[in-house]
């Protein structure tokens, strides 16, 4: 029993690390632009299919092909913000949400048209590799790498945001865009580039999450909704909170799946989210 519990919690931590990767980049784009991008998860799908295409064409390992996919996603993020989101940023929330839902339809079905709807696996040299801790804890190496990647990303975000001039400017734009402009910060430029980086990070997340997971064009929504829950539970602009909330979702999902039985167990994180939103709308870790 305890062995199962430990294995489950560890598995949940690893899955949560994957969610955290996506949630942190979602947090970055949300905080700099004030826009919740419902197509965020679809960019992850896009990154994964690009990795698949590069694997098929040139036999590039997904880890290696990020060198190509990162710039591609960065550019598409920049284009998304500059051409579609910036013009509507001041209109009603409903409109902005609709627009990003429109982008979701375009991406999901664009991918469907190009790659077809069958779930596919991207073969990777790492796929089957296991790490064995002690005598009973089995960990899939790619998941451990993804978890480590999420920690590294969190660390990197913290260093950049809290300890560099660029980060200071991004925080200024987030806290008071008008004052930031009066300080000589080129606000549209900061927003566009940061949004691009946020989408670009999806390339890295995609590479880290791909080994051993089948991908399909319609998966993106799930990769928007769960990170979005982490974002809200974490308190929107508190990156540590977002990270912890993503981990918490991973762990509760794993516990639910193992101990509550199958699909009903997957409800646990959603129920947790609704509870948190009702009881602690300011976020789990922030003082009211």
């Amino acid at each position: 029993m305890t062995e199962l519990l430990i294995q489950t919690v560890v598995q949940g931590l690893l899955v949560g690390g994957g969610y955290a990767l996506v949630a942190l980049s979602l947090g970055l784009t949300y905080n700099v632009s004030g826009i919740i991008n419902f197509a965020h998860g679809d960019f992850l799908t896009l990154a994964m299919y690009l990795a698949l295409a590069l694997q098929t064409a040139w036999a590039l390992d997904p880890y290696v092909s990020t060198v190509i996919t990162f710039p591609l996603l960065f550019v598409s993020g920049v284009a998304l913000y500059w051409f579609l989101l910036r013009p509507v940023a001041r209109s009603q929330l409903l409109m902005v949400i609709q627009l990003t839902l429109g982008v979701t339809f375009v991406l999901q079905n664009g991918i469907l048209m190009v790659f077809g709807g069958q779930p596919v696996r991207v073969p990777s040299d790492w796929e089957a590799s296991l790490l064995i801790l002690g005598d009973s804890l089995f960990l899939r190496t790619p998941q451990v790498l993804a978890f480590a990647g999420s920690l590294l990303l969190a660390l990197l975000l913290w260093i950049v945001l809290d300890h560099t001039e660029t980060g200071r400017r991004i925080r200024a734009v987030h806290q008071n865009p008008r004052a930031a402009a009066l300080m000589g910060i080129d606000v549209p430029r900061v927003r566009t580039l940061t949004f691009g980086v946020g989408i670009g990070i999806q390339a890295i997340a995609g590479a880290l999450l791909i080994p051993g997971t089948p991908i399909e064009p319609g998966q993106g929504f799930r990769y928007t909704v769960i990170p979005l829950m982490a974002l809200v539970m974490g308190g929107l602009s508190d990156f540590r909170g977002i990270y912890l909330a993503a981990i918490l979702i991973g762990v509760t999902e794993a516990l639910g799946t193992v101990f509550v039985s199958g699909t009903s167990g997957m409800i646990v994180p959603y129920a947790l989210f609704v509870l948190v939103l009702l009881l602690r709308p300011q976020g789990l870790f922030r003082r009211a």
Partner: peptide
Amino acid sequence: TLPGLHFFLYGVLIIVVVLTSP
């Protein structure tokens, strides 16, 4: 041949509508 084409077009349409006549 092109499953998803009509949803793709919905997507394009909604983007155009939100941008031009919200």
